[in-house]
Design a protein around this nucleic acid. Structure first.
Lengths: 242, 242
DNA sequence: GTCTATATAATGATAGAC
DNA sequence: GTCTATCATTATATAGAC
């Protein structure tokens, strides 16, 4: 499913070549000719099989969605399919899944309908998982479950989105299986103890924000009204300045 | 610096047009003609001023780096410049900084040298901030400070990388100031209390991983040798499955 | 500095032979 | 199914007039 399938049908070879080049250089950056060369066929054959470059892209999208959401190994796994699980499987062996990883990253970042569906599904599953954890008593309920689910879900996408940076910043090139493993413990530490050693900062922010909600509709815990002002002093924020 | 500068020099207008279109459609997806049209000049003038499309891109890179790292309002702020701080400033008013945000996102994801420098600097600053927090007693020391810094830093980039998804998943279109504000509290909750209500999962993972380190060089707490095997059962992992 | 006109190459897509 | 040959369009970049 991942490496260069030597014995695949010509049509599949073209599709795989497109997937690899779209993933590596983006849709606009990969030409039909490049794809043809990689598949070992003429440019005309690419169009003959798929009708247009855009239709070829759509088929690549569908392939990745199928690989993630099911249709493929659903008979083997029994599971319906999951972005998070697929991502982890792929990241555990980046070399074998290079093309799929690159393409999936583009789907998420380039903002098409298929990528939006994948993301929304991930958020929904994350939300369900947290709700379940809270009900079971293993997880802490936040003040804003919808936002919390989005935050947790997006954090999970980081290794996909920043694969190259993660590897480089830690002295390797690319994201090795060893690095993926090395992320487990610090991530769990963060999700278990947090980063701050005292609730002082949270309490300060909570108090400061209590004077000016009306931020955006969504499950707010209890504290009520206020005026839609700027918040007086955002003590910390989503931007790595916690 | 952000909206369409009606009275800027022609050269600057071309550069701003390029920045906006490179950011919106990517380098390959934005043609010199498109840029010329947006700037209200002929395509030839674009090349005349910058020499080539690639040189024009380089100048856009430099502009964004300058806006982030200094050179611009360094006389006003006194600060040397910071990706995290700039990002927050831009995200607080997305409409005014649409072009810079889009371009910066591409710089980070498309993997050029300039984007790598920005990322590495962000990680270094995050590392310093955490070390400082640990020394001051406000933050908890993790078992792997380098990896922890990378994780925290990348989490901070999420609003930038997934701006559109964040907005949509929460019922709005785009990332409104209100949504940015709404992220503060849940993020601080996560960084203060974590997500798990008990250390059981962390301890289980810690025990499981203790049998097979040799993952990748880096400050490991105390536990020592082992063999470079697959880890027996990754209890949770970076992929939103905590 | 800015344009028109043009060179030259690459693009997506088609026609038709085999 | 697969190719060669080619079309129409667009790409980046240049030449030279104003």
């Amino acid at each position: 499913m991942a490496p260069a399938p030597v014995d695949a049908s010509t049509r599949d070879r073209i599709r795989d070549a497109a997937l690899a080049l779209f993933g590596r250089h983006g849709y606009a950056g990969a030409s039909v000719r490049d794809i043809a060369v990689r598949a070992g066929v003429s440019p005309a054959l690419v169009i003959h099989h798929f009708g247009s470059k855009e239709a070829l892209r759509a088929e690549c999208d569908a392939l990745i969605v199928d690989e993630i959401m099911g249709r493929k190994e659903s008979l083997l796994d029994g599971e319906p399919g999951d972005l998070a699980a697929t991502m982890q499987r792929w990241l555990a062996d980046v070399d074998s899944h290079r093309a799929s990883l690159d393409y999936l990253t583009r789907m998420i970042t380039d903002g098409g309908a298929a990528g939006e569906r994948l993301f929304d599904d991930l958020v929904a599953r994350t939300r369900a998982m947290i709700d379940q954890g809270v009900a079971a008593g293993t997880m802490r309920a936040g003040s804003d479950p919808a936002m919390t689910a989005v935050i947790i879900a997006t954090h999970g996408l980081v290794p996909l989105l920043l694969e190259h940076h993660l590897g480089r910043a830690l002295g390797e090139q690319g994201l090795s299986p060893a690095l993926v493993r090395r992320m487990t413990l610090p991530t769990l530490e963060l999700y278990t103890h947090g980063l701050y050693s005292s609730p002082a900062i949270l309490e300060a922010a909570s108090a400061a924000l209590a004077g000016s909600p009306e931020t955006s509709r969504g499950p707010r815990s209890d504290k009520g009204a206020g005026d839609p002002n700027q918040d007086p002093d955002p003590p910390a924020a989503p931007a790595s300045d916690p």
